[in-house]
Computed example of a mutant assay.
Amino acid sequence: MTDRALLFTALAALALTAAGAAGGWVAGLAGLPLPWLIGSLAASALIVGLGGHRLPAGFRYPEPLRLSFIAVIGLMIGAQVTPDLATRLPGLAVSLAALAVFTLAAFAASYAVFRGLGGYDRVTAFYCATPGGLYESIMLGEAAGADIRQLTLQQFLRIILVVTLLPLGITLIEGMPVGSSAGVTGAPPGAEVTPWGLASTLAAGAVGLIAARRLRLPAGQLLGPLLAAAALNLTGFGPVALPAELVIAAQIVVGASLGARFLGVTGRMLGRAAGLGLVSVGVMLAMAGGAAMALSGVTGKPVDVLLISFAPGGVTEMSLVALSLGASPAIVTLHHLFRIGLTVVIISVASKLKIPR
């Protein structure tokens, strides 16, 4: 690539990122869930959809920039693995075991929707159907030969639909707004950032990246920092601390980079994906509701708390919903980390074994 082409690519990436920041700001004003991520994705996708022909030929969002901020997302998730979560683990054996069964069943049911109803090829249907692990599903699915535009659409539609429909449903049941609709923000990850905390967090992220690369971990740019941050917290060298601005920047960059993948997506493709997403999410939420009702009598936990813990949505938004209901965000977070971790293990093994072919 010539210097001129590199310059145009850099300027295009900068423009998409700036548009993503603006989209995130607007989404935040509108009270949407995951505003910086979803708003950035929507703005970037809109630009490439309407003006993709003006982008440099063969344009791709700069990979090093994207991977760097995916590492920040890994640190953010790993920061939620605290000693408090570890002490609660023995008492959650029943619900976690049920969650493992639910994850497998939801995966299979969603696969049937995309393969049978949607007619997607087996590889694309498999990675579209994952009930968690958005970034890992996209990265491993792309490497396995899945249709990246369909896969990106379906994975983000899963998050969007769950974090929109579930709080709305609970709001109707409870008679009061919950989650993002209630204006709950929670303490940002960097609320008590200290120089030592920030330095140790960034150092842990660098160590995690290097270790993941040497061990050839799947989705290592996310999993390595995640495990390093968790280790930092659990060994007492934490707490992991990230400035809120860095976490926001990571969501903007990741959203803009994924929005850029929508280059060439048609309105017909989007409509079809949304329809399939509604069916898939509807089936998984119905299964989560059934599991929550069955487990409530056994565990003594409220049905709505268990439903939030099982719902295949984002960790952050589900924790906000739990907070607004007076439930323990730590318990909800642990269930979501377990579901995501199990899903990542499943698709990582499948990727190694080249399943499905």
Results as ranks from 00 to 15, higher is better:
1 M>S: 14
2 T>E: 05
7 L>D: 05
18 A>M: 06
20 G>F: 02
21 A>G: 12
22 A>Y: 04
22 A>D: 00
26 V>Y: 02
29 L>S: 11
29 L>A: 12
31 G>F: 08
33 P>Y: 09
33 P>F: 13
37 L>H: 03
37 L>W: 05
44 S>R: 08
44 S>P: 10
49 G>L: 08
55 L>D: 02
56 P>N: 12
57 A>E: 12
59 F>W: 09
61 Y>F: 15
61 Y>T: 06
64 P>A: 14
65 L>Q: 02
65 L>S: 03
69 F>P: 01
69 F>W: 03
70 I>V: 15
74 G>Y: 08
78 G>D: 09
78 G>A: 04
79 A>F: 09
89 L>K: 03
93 A>C: 09
104 L>G: 13
105 A>V: 12
110 S>H: 01
122 R>P: 04
124 T>I: 03
127 Y>S: 05
135 Y>C: 07
136 E>L: 07
138 I>D: 00
143 A>F: 04
144 A>E: 11
146 A>V: 04
154 Q>D: 03
155 Q>I: 07
156 F>I: 01
156 F>P: 02
157 L>Y: 03
162 V>D: 00
165 L>D: 00
168 L>S: 14
170 I>V: 14
174 E>D: 09
178 V>I: 13
178 V>R: 09
179 G>R: 04
180 S>Q: 11
180 S>E: 10
181 S>F: 13
181 S>K: 08
183 G>R: 13
186 G>N: 10
188 P>T: 07
188 P>R: 03
190 G>T: 09
191 A>I: 08
202 L>K: 11
208 G>D: 02
208 G>H: 01
210 I>M: 14
210 I>K: 10
212 A>Q: 02
213 R>V: 02
214 R>K: 14
216 R>Q: 12
229 A>W: 05
231 A>H: 04
241 A>L: 10
243 P>H: 07
243 P>T: 12
247 V>F: 08
253 V>K: 02
258 L>G: 03
260 A>C: 11
261 R>Q: 11
262 F>Q: 07
263 L>R: 14
264 G>E: 05
265 V>G: 10
270 L>S: 06
275 G>Y: 02
276 L>D: 01
277 G>L: 02
285 L>Q: 00
288 A>F: 04
288 A>L: 09
289 G>W: 13
297 G>D: 05
298 V>D: 00
298 V>L: 15
299 T>S: 14
303 V>C: 06
305 V>E: 14
307 L>V: 01
308 I>C: 10
317 E>V: 12
323 L>D: 07
325 L>D: 03
325 L>H: 04
327 A>N: 01
327 A>R: 01
336 H>E: 07
341 G>N: 04
346 I>E: 10
346 I>P: 10
347 I>A: 13
347 I>G: 13
348 S>G: 12
348 S>F: 11
349 V>T: 08
353 L>K: 08
355 I>V: 15
